[in-house]
Lab assay of single mutants.
Amino acid sequence: AQVHVDGVTYDFDNPEEAEKFAREMAKRKGGTVEVKNDQWHVE
């Protein structure tokens, strides 16, 4: 699973880890999390 944050792509073998990371980053940035094509996007 991939997580996109500020133009940087992070690869995770485990989708749950990807989701956890995406939500944590969004919380830190005060942003939102979107899922597109099985990829997490932190805005």
Score class of each variant (00 low, 15 high):
29 K>L: 15
28 R>L: 15
12 F>Y: 02
29 K>P: 07
10 Y>K: 01
26 A>M: 03
18 A>F: 01
27 K>F: 13
8 V>K: 12
6 D>S: 07
8 V>H: 10
23 R>Q: 10
30 G>L: 03
18 A>Y: 02
27 K>H: 13
16 E>L: 11
18 A>V: 01
14 N>F: 08
15 P>I: 08
17 E>D: 12
40 W>E: 03
15 P>F: 09
39 Q>I: 15
9 T>Q: 09
30 G>W: 04
11 D>Y: 15
14 N>K: 09
12 F>L: 03
27 K>N: 12
23 R>G: 05
15 P>R: 13
16 E>R: 10
4 H>T: 11
14 N>A: 07
12 F>S: 00
5 V>Q: 01
31 G>D: 06
30 G>T: 04
28 R>W: 13
8 V>S: 06
19 E>M: 08
9 T>W: 12
36 K>D: 08
8 V>Y: 10
36 K>A: 08
29 K>I: 15
42 V>G: 04
24 E>V: 04
28 R>K: 14
4 H>S: 06
38 D>N: 15
6 D>T: 02
20 K>W: 10
29 K>G: 10
3 V>D: 00
39 Q>S: 10
24 E>L: 08
33 V>N: 02
32 T>Y: 14
31 G>R: 01
22 A>M: 02
17 E>F: 03
27 K>Y: 13
21 F>L: 01
8 V>N: 07
38 D>L: 11
15 P>M: 11
29 K>N: 13
12 F>Q: 00
41 H>S: 07
41 H>E: 05
38 D>I: 04
11 D>G: 08
42 V>K: 04
38 D>F: 11
18 A>G: 02
7 G>Y: 03
19 E>G: 04
6 D>R: 03
37 N>Q: 09
21 F>K: 00
1 A>R: 13
40 W>P: 04
24 E>A: 08
6 D>L: 05
4 H>R: 08
36 K>F: 11
32 T>Q: 08
28 R>Q: 14
28 R>S: 13
41 H>K: 06
41 H>F: 15
23 R>V: 12
25 M>R: 03
29 K>Q: 12
33 V>T: 05
41 H>N: 06
27 K>P: 01
35 V>G: 09
19 E>I: 06
13 D>F: 07
1 A>N: 12
7 G>N: 06
23 R>C: 14
25 M>A: 09
40 W>Q: 04
5 V>Y: 09
7 G>R: 02
8 V>F: 11
21 F>I: 01
9 T>L: 08
6 D>Q: 06
10 Y>V: 02
32 T>M: 07
41 H>G: 04
22 A>D: 01
31 G>L: 06
2 Q>W: 08
39 Q>D: 06
17 E>W: 04
7 G>F: 03
40 W>T: 04
9 T>Y: 08
29 K>D: 08
29 K>S: 13
11 D>L: 14
7 G>V: 01
31 G>C: 14
26 A>T: 02
23 R>I: 12
37 N>D: 12
32 T>N: 07
7 G>K: 03
31 G>E: 06
35 V>H: 13
10 Y>A: 01
26 A>L: 05
41 H>M: 09
20 K>Y: 10
6 D>Y: 08
16 E>F: 11
3 V>E: 00
25 M>G: 01
24 E>M: 07
5 V>K: 01
35 V>E: 06
7 G>D: 05
32 T>E: 06
20 K>A: 13
3 V>G: 00
1 A>T: 14
18 A>P: 00
32 T>L: 08
39 Q>W: 04
14 N>G: 07
39 Q>F: 05
9 T>M: 09
21 F>T: 01
10 Y>Q: 00
1 A>G: 08
1 A>V: 12
5 V>P: 00
12 F>M: 04
43 E>T: 15
10 Y>R: 01
15 P>W: 13
26 A>I: 07
36 K>P: 03
6 D>E: 07
15 P>A: 13
38 D>K: 09
27 K>T: 11
24 E>S: 05
30 G>P: 05
18 A>H: 00
37 N>T: 05
4 H>N: 07
15 P>D: 10
16 E>I: 12
18 A>N: 00
25 M>E: 14
43 E>Q: 14
22 A>L: 04
2 Q>A: 07
14 N>H: 09
1 A>K: 12
10 Y>S: 01
43 E>R: 15
17 E>G: 03
20 K>P: 00
30 G>V: 03
10 Y>P: 00
30 G>A: 04
20 K>G: 06
4 H>W: 13
32 T>R: 11
13 D>N: 10
40 W>Y: 12
23 R>E: 10
11 D>T: 14
28 R>I: 15
3 V>P: 00
29 K>M: 15
25 M>D: 05
2 Q>D: 02
18 A>M: 01
34 E>K: 14
19 E>S: 04
13 D>T: 09
37 N>C: 12
7 G>I: 02
36 K>E: 08
26 A>H: 03
19 E>T: 02
33 V>S: 05
8 V>E: 09
26 A>Y: 02
22 A>W: 02
5 V>N: 02
29 K>R: 10
28 R>Y: 13
19 E>H: 05
9 T>R: 12
34 E>I: 15
40 W>I: 07
38 D>H: 13
39 Q>G: 15
26 A>F: 01
35 V>Q: 12
36 K>T: 08
25 M>F: 06
7 G>A: 03
36 K>S: 10
12 F>P: 00
24 E>Q: 06
21 F>M: 01
33 V>M: 05
16 E>V: 12
4 H>Q: 08
35 V>D: 03
9 T>P: 04
39 Q>A: 12
40 W>M: 06
24 E>R: 05
40 W>S: 03
5 V>T: 03
8 V>G: 04
7 G>W: 02
28 R>P: 05
37 N>S: 06
26 A>G: 03
11 D>M: 14
31 G>W: 14
12 F>N: 00
15 P>Y: 10
13 D>Y: 07
30 G>Q: 06
24 E>F: 06
35 V>K: 14
21 F>H: 02
42 V>D: 03
